[in-house]
Simulated scan of single mutants.
Amino acid sequence: MSTRRPPAPLLDAALVAVALLDVWVHADASEPLRLVCALVAAFVLLLRRRLPRLTFLLTLPAVLLSDSVFAALAALYTLASLTRGRTLLVVCAVAFTFSDLVSLPSPGFDFSAPSTFIAMGYTAATAAAPVFLGQLVQARRDLSLRLAEISRARDHERQLTAQTVLARERTTLAREMHDVVAHQVSLIAVRAGALQVGSRDTDVRQAAATIRKLSVQTLEELRHMVSVLRTAGGDPVELVPQPSLADLRRLVDNSGIETELRTDLPDGLPPPVQRAVYRTVQEALTNVRKHAPGATAVVRIRHEHATVRVTVTNSPPTRPALSLPGAHHGLVGLRQRAELLGGTVTCGPTPDGGYRLSFALPVTGTR
């Protein structure tokens, strides 16, 4: 748990107070020059954050002329915590060491005496302590900044992940809207159009025209919604509930098309494969209703050499197709689904004027 630091002005005032105490202990009023230098060194600590180098230089005379060294050590610590120049710190530590040994105006050291080197080592260690402490504080501050940057980067990564998931959900929702909602609305429009053309009752024809008009408008709005949702992109994330092969018969029976269903698929196909087969048949029958009114269809689903093959073939239309809006996302969605599962989709007209859609998908893990 991080502790809260005291305010900077309060800390500076405390340092000045300790430095003045050091002056009171070591300075002599009978020596005004030394007293003034010591007092200047004490009060100049108020500038240590903004001008750390100048502050240290202004504290050196007090070290040279008196024994009041606390202000110089505090200035040296501040300089070490704010600068990255190692050479400058070494020079400042050496300057403090020799200033403390010289003690002007009467130098009191003799290099021929062993005690001089002992005193020099002690003074150098005293100067090195605030330097190392300041560098340690600087390293801790840099580490805190790096940790804050890492935390911000992780937050940004989480936001990107959430946006990616949302994009995938939008794309999947667009696909499901086209496969399910548009499928049902297009069936309503086709049935209403047939009722409008075939009925002799004026009221029924008007009601059918209204239903068809609303259905067409709904399909157009769905097309715009699907286009907006598809702009997000991303890999599909399946929604629930999802259809399976057990729902094929109901799909064919409710398609409004005379359809023959032939299937010999084994049990235990993976759910993604079952959904892909269902969506392929659904899209093919939807296209038959929209583009080949009155046509019949044959749905052939078989399992050959570890491959599921779906073929939907329709006969030529027997009456003109109704003009229904379409965004042409159906076949695109089928191809995307097939590519994700390692399969292929092919389609094209038949020689007799009909149309054939084929879907091939490799299957593993059946039981």
Rank of each mutant, 00 (worst) to 15 (best):
P107T: 02
R335C: 07
L101R: 13
E238T: 02
E149T: 15
S151F: 01
Q196A: 15
L214D: 13
R309W: 00
D264V: 01
K213T: 15
A189G: 07
L57C: 07
P317W: 07
Q138P: 02
I301T: 01
S358E: 10
L65R: 03
P236L: 10
L57N: 01
R200M: 06
W24K: 06
A72C: 08
R48F: 05
M1R: 11
V288Y: 02
G193A: 12
G193V: 02
T344N: 10
L101D: 05
S199F: 08
H328S: 09
A338F: 02
R300M: 10
A72M: 07
V226C: 03
R367S: 11
T318S: 15
R302A: 12
L229K: 01
G342Q: 07
R250H: 13
D22A: 11
R146L: 15
M1H: 10
R175H: 10
F98D: 04
E283P: 10
D267N: 14
F111H: 02
Q282L: 09
G256I: 12
M1G: 15
T55W: 05
A167W: 06
V197N: 05
G365M: 10
A74D: 10
G85H: 13
G353C: 08
Y122F: 13
L239P: 00
S30Q: 10
D28L: 11
A113T: 07
I211W: 07
L340T: 14
A27Y: 06
V102S: 05
R53N: 01
R50F: 07
P266I: 07
S215M: 09
S2H: 13
D28Q: 12
S106I: 15
P316W: 00
C37K: 05
T263E: 02
L60N: 06
S315A: 11
G134I: 06
G121V: 14
P241N: 03
K213L: 14
V131D: 05
G330T: 11
S215F: 06
R200T: 15
F111N: 00
T3P: 11
R168W: 03
S186F: 02
T218Q: 06
P107D: 04
R230C: 01
L15M: 13
Y278C: 00
L160E: 11
T263C: 03
A93H: 04
N254Y: 04
D110A: 11
A13H: 02
L251S: 04
S99T: 08
I257Q: 04
R154P: 00
E258I: 09
R5W: 12
H26S: 09
S144A: 15
G343W: 12
L136F: 14
V90L: 14
L51E: 00
T280Y: 04
Q282P: 00
M1F: 07
R141I: 11
V40H: 01
A208C: 08
L145S: 09
A209H: 12
V299D: 00
V288M: 03
